[in-house]
Nucleic acid binder design. Structure first.
Length: 825
RNA sequence: GCCGGAAUGGCGGAAUUGGCAGACGCAGCAGACUCAAAAUCUGCCGUUGGCAACAACGUGCCGGUUCAAGUCCGGCUUCCGGCACCA
């Protein structure tokens, strides 16, 4: 065989696979299916190492499962709506579509150079009318189910991007995409009612056994469920009522004030009746002008202003001062919070600053608190109640329940579950997205575009200048239309949808990508989906993964699919780092996949990236490590070349009993390796250790390079070695397969099965321990029972020497492992 | 503050159910081949002491359980990530 030349063989096989459509798949209800999916990329123009890692992992799973006999769906597509295309249009005058499609073309070319087993016929591009027609159709479905609505609200606005953002897209007060400060704006916007599904989105996290704990916790935190009590307080001077929400009803006898957000409904009424209306107004204005970060940071100074009015604590009839404050979150709970300084550190700080009364209602069990000596609130959730009428003396946890019962019985309280999760703001004042299929009629109001008129096509005669209105409004032809209901002159909705809508259902479209009658066929989607293994970055832990779960649940309730979770198993890959930090142009530490593939080939790039670290951990890029992977593939190539004649001459059913002792040992290692690699790939996603055991096998193979090797065994070694490496390094293995075995593609072979009998050892090494320390090793038959093992070991000179003159307290025998002699003296 | 994850040689990492810590790879050292170098093949490679046999120490820290602990329990430290004035 000639020298290993990846550049020559990789191209050859990629062309052949494509021509022969080796990776094309069809639904087949008679075969078990496996759906392997990598998160589809945004078409930025070039693949980076993160993509390479993502696709390499997915490709191993897809190829492995295919060899295991599954009908495998392994598709790829592009999340191709979005801002960068539009920015390119503004900056360079190219159309967003042209920019996007040329990037897709380039990235596809790079993906194809990786040798990935995609069924390209199923490619999904979210920016095509064939796709966004169904995105719009799904929006209409949500609308009809009462899950899409338009409302005026204070929303997140990114001035740089010229659009609003969902809560999930605001990271530490900054835009997720461009990192600039997010402001608040009052706008009328479309929302999806994800809060209707808050409870089930939280509860079903328990079902997701194949998801990493940390992703589930993140979603749990984000949804933020809390159980508590709503308490209604009278405000006699205004003849009004006020509702507060608390998770600590046990402290209700300690209310001395009520803190209101300026947005609370009662505030305007308070100001109206107040004799210091101007001051209060000014204070409210000041608070409302603060940005979200200023207002919601726990470090910022608590401020407030007394309104002069009081509410009555319904538990004890005590008066509670009504304050307008800057520290109450307006859109959580009721925008009003009961102030119990003794039991809440924020209330404590506020009460101390403004000299408000404090009542102690909870005493810890292990010490006695004296109000005058306290320097901070007692916030531990443990103790007995004091100063709490009939509840005094009760354990805190019992009191929570008892007080809620009491409040409900008396009619001034109601148990309530609250969530941190807010509805999903989906309007975007941008061009390159799916238009919201709604027409505004002066007579009929909001009207959905009739299904037969979908898709609402993106116009091309627009000006791309960013502003507070979508560029779609600049197309007269697009903007003006007739009302589908009454025929009157009407205008279209000019906002487009958040691209996260497009990506919330793309994995379902892959199951039936060319359907022009429906988003997907029910039988097809229920055959292939849910996704068996989803692979992607942790950055989508909340955004994409939460939205997709929401979509799936709505589609299940609408009867479009039979499952209620989209992704059975989730693998969050680590980042690819260079010199300890994420590769980025600004740091100048980017390693280009194209260059690496050009130099060493895709097989080396894939092998290195899978070998260098466990898939879920960050990976430090190492040029020398890549060399190592390349060396290994060369070693495989050479050793198989060395035994080429034997491999070709060998028979598949040869006489194993004729093997020498050394050959038997090699064969044993082979079968141990098959077991190890199978389990690592199938059960643990430990590709790094799977590869390392194949390396060990190759090292053992090299032990025979200067020796005779039974032709049957040479063949068995080669067949299984090439098969085991096939998912990791698809080209070199295909080349070797064609050289050595001729028939078919290695990727359509059956995955190796290990032979228990071959794994049996005549002799195994056991360890002698004295007091738990290793003192000697000996080869024995693996069939020895405890007694026989003990006997053999006790006869060892080392054992005699080290136990001489000492008292043997105990002897522990672990069959096939060790004998531990415990001595005293 | 609450929640989650992690910590093992010079480096990436392995040890799956408590049973030989450091597999495999990188780097390093040595030998073979070569006029020489590269490539390749082979061997060595945690620390300390010792010519060696061997011994002691060693998986972030302190303690515990156990014949035996990287692994289990209790208490910390540091780092990474999420949430956070959410009542």
């Amino acid at each position: 065989m000639e020298k290993y030349s990846p550049q020559a063989i990789e191209k050859k096989w990629q062309d052949k696979w494509e021509k022969e459509q080796v990776y094309k798949t069809e639904a087949d209800p008679n075969r078990p299916k496996y759906y392997a999916l990598e998160m589809f990329p945004y078409p930025s123009g070039n693949l980076h190492m993160g993509h390479v890692r993502n696709y390499a992992i997915g490709d191993v799973m897809a190829r492995y499962k295919t060899m295991e006999g599954y009908n495998v769906l392994h598709p790829m597509g592009f999340d191709s709506f979005g801002m960068p295309a539009e920015n390119a249009a503004i900056k360079h005058g190219v159309s967003p579509a042209d920019w996007t499609f040329s990037n897709i073309e380039n990235m596809e070319k790079q993906q194809k150079k990786m040798g990935l087993s995609y069924d390209w016929d199923r490619e999904v591009l979210t920016c095509t009318p064939e796709y966004y027609k169904w995105t719009q159709w799904l929006f209409e479905l949500f609308y009809q189910k009462g899950l899409a609505y338009k409302k005026k609200a204070s929303v997140n606005w990114c001035d740089t991007c010229g659009t609003v953002l969902a809560n999930e897209q605001v990271i530490d007060g900054k835009c997720w995409r461009c990192d600039s400060d997010v402001q608040k704006k009052d706008l009328s916007q479309w929302f999806l009612k994800i809060t209707d599904y808050a409870d089930v989105l939280l509860k079903d996290l328990d079902k997701l056994e194949g998801w990493p704990e940390r992703v589930k916790t993140m979603q749990d935190n984000w949804i933020g469920r809390s159980e508590g009590l709503e308490i209604t307080l009278d405000v006699p001077e205004l003849d009004e009522k006020l509702v507060v929400y608390t998770t600590r009803p046990d402290t209700a006898y300690g209310i001395t004030f009520v803190a209101l957000a300026p947005e609370n409904e009662l505030v305007d009424k308070l100001i109206e009746k107040s004799d210091k209306a101007e001051e209060l107004k000014a204070f409210c204005q000041k608070v409302r002008n603060q940005s979200d970060i200023e207002r919601t940071s726990s470090e910022s100074e608590k401020e407030g202003m007394f309104t002069g009015f009081y509410a009555v604590n319904p538990f004890n009839g005590e008066k509670a001062q009504l304050w307008i404050t800057n520290y109450v979150v307006a859109d959580y709970g009721t925008g009003a919070v009961m102030g119990v300084p003794s039991g809440d550190s924020r209330d404590w700080m506020f009460a101390k600053k403004y000299d408000l009364p404090i009542i102690l209602t909870l005493q810890p069990k292990d010490k006695e608190l004296v109000l005058e000596e306290m320097t901070e609130a007692y916030v531990e959730k443990d103790g007995r109640l004091v100063n709490s009428a009939q509840f005094t003396g009760m354990d805190m946890h019992e009191a929570v329940k008892a007080i809620m019962d009491y409040a409900e019985e008396k009619g001034f309280g109601k148990r309530k579950v609250n969530f941190r999760l807010r509805d999903w703001l989906i309007s975007r004042q941008r061009y390159w997205g799916a238009p919201i299929p709604v027409i505004n009629c002066p007579h009929c109001g909001e009207v959905l575009v009739p299904e037969e008129d979908l898709p609402v096509m993106l116009p091309t005669d627009v000006s791309f200048e960013a502003g507070s209105v979508s560029p779609l409004a600049s197309s007269e032809k697009f903007l003006h239309c007739k009302c589908p209901k009454c025929g009157a002159d009407a205008t279209r909705e000019t906002d487009t949808m958040d691209t996260f809508i497009c990506s919330s259902w793309y994995f379902l479209r892959y199951t039936d990508p060319h359907n022009d009658k429906a988003p997907f066929d029910k039988d097809k989607v229920n055959y292939w989906a849910p996704v068996d293994q989803y692979i992607g970055g942790i950055e989508h832990a909340i955004l994409h993964l939460l939205y997709s779960r929401f979509f799936t649940k709505v589609l299940k309730d609408a009867g479009l699919v039979d499952f209620d979770e989209p992704f059975k198993n989730l693998l969050t890959q680590g980042m690819v780092l260079k010199d300890g930090s994420k590769m980025s142009k600004s740091k100048g530490n980017v390693v280009s996949p194209e260059e690496i593939i050009g130099k060493y080939g895709a097989d080396t790039a894939r092998l290195f990236i899978l070998f260098a670290a466990p898939v879920d951990r960050d990976l430090e890029w190492s040029d020398q490590g890549v060399e190592g992977a390349y060396r290994f593939l060369n070693r495989v190539w050479r050793i198989l070349g060395h035994f080429e004649e034997s491999i070709k001459a060998g028979k598949d059913d040869y006489d194993v009993s004729a093997l020498t002792k050394d050959e038997k040992e090699l064969r044993r290692i082979l079968h141990v390796t098959i077991k190890k690699v199978t389990e690592d790939v199938r059960d643990r996603f430990m590709f790094n250790t799977a590869i390392s055991s194949v390396m060990e096998l190759v090292n053992a193979f090299y032990g025979f390079q200067d020796k005779e090797l039974n032709a049957g065994l040479a063949r068995e070694m080669a067949v299984n070695l090439v098969k085991m490496l096939a998912p990791f390094a698809p080209h070199i293995t295909e080349e070797l397969w064609s050289h050595l075995f001729v028939e078919g593609s290695v990727h359509q072979q059956k995955w190796p099965v290990y032979d228990e009998a071959a794994m049996k050892q005549d002799e195994i090494e056991i360890v002698l321990q004295i007091n738990g320390k290793v003192r000697d090793k000996i080869m024995v038959s693996p069939d020895l029972d405890r007694e026989a093992m003990e006997k053999v070991v006790m006869e060892l000179p080392r054992a005699k020497e080290l136990t001489e003159g000492k008292q043997i307290v105990k002897v522990i025998c672990v069959p096939k492992k060790l004998v531990n002699i415990v001595v005293k003296g």
